[in-house]
Amino acid sequence: MLNYIIRRLVMLIPVLLGVSILTFSMIHMIPGDPARSMLGTKANEKALTELREELGLNDPYLVQYGKFLGDLAQGDLGTSFKTKAPVSDELESRLPATIELTLFAMAIAMVVGVLAGVISAVKQYSWFDNLSMTGALFGVSIPIFWLGLMMIWLFSVKLGWLPASGRLSSGVEIEAITHFYLLDSILTLNWSGFADVFKHLLMPGVALATIPMAIIALMTRSSMLEVMNQDYIRTADAKGLATYLVVFQHALKNAFLPVLTVIGLQFGFLLGGAVLTETIFSWPGIGRFVLQSILARDYPVVQSTILVIAVIFVFVNLITDILYKYIDPRISLD
């Protein structure tokens, strides 16, 4: 197992290097001049030339890329062109904001998705099965940015139940320890803060969870059905164990494997999908931040942030693979 993990980690290096090369070349292919975006209407020729020199934009690409890698090796993510602040500063609260939203959405998707899938499989063809499967079909087809807007219209504009934007109400203080507000509020036993954070998470969380929830429900149902039709489950059934025990001990464990893969893949999807969700719910995370940085050609921010996202994504995949092995030792990891 340890060997396997080490081997996988080593294999990540070329992939991440590839990601960094791809990001670097793509962002430099974007037409336009970062110096000009920084100076805006106040640009004049002299200022532009000087600024380009200062930002190192006149260096050959290889030198620029080398510098980026070199800094990275020393743990330096670079400095934003636009704000002149270190990228790590910019990410300090934004990254946890996005991850918190993503985990929250993942939790909703898993709990609801797996539950709905299991019940649907056990009670196949029941009204619940039909309802949840129809819901799932609707779920994978809905544009989440539209769903988000409609939710805001209903729950914020019309009913006034939930806040339309942000992570926290003004005036609510949460001591930022990890920048995961839900966690921070628990750590500081700040229950009113916890409630406020939760309320803010609810709509963007549900919007973001919609598609993975639907997919997990569909997957869970179909793999449960497949497993339940296999001989050993029938045998267990025949032995007279209580039905729920059969279901949960045998079937669920086996059915969980494909579901796990989906969850791993969907985590990456969520990180990406956060761009739209964050835009709609004014969520101060990295999604919107990267989007704006790409458009402003803020090279250091884009390069480092995308790499950070890719690192998270590949590690989540690695973890799911390891879990895979843990749940079912018969699976060969090669």
Binding site: D89, S93, R94, A97, S170, A176, F289
Partner: peptide, 8 residues
């Protein structure tokens, strides 16, 4: 007093 990037 304090600055939370992108937020407040």
């Amino acid at each position: 007093e304090s600055w939370t990037r992108g937020d407040r």
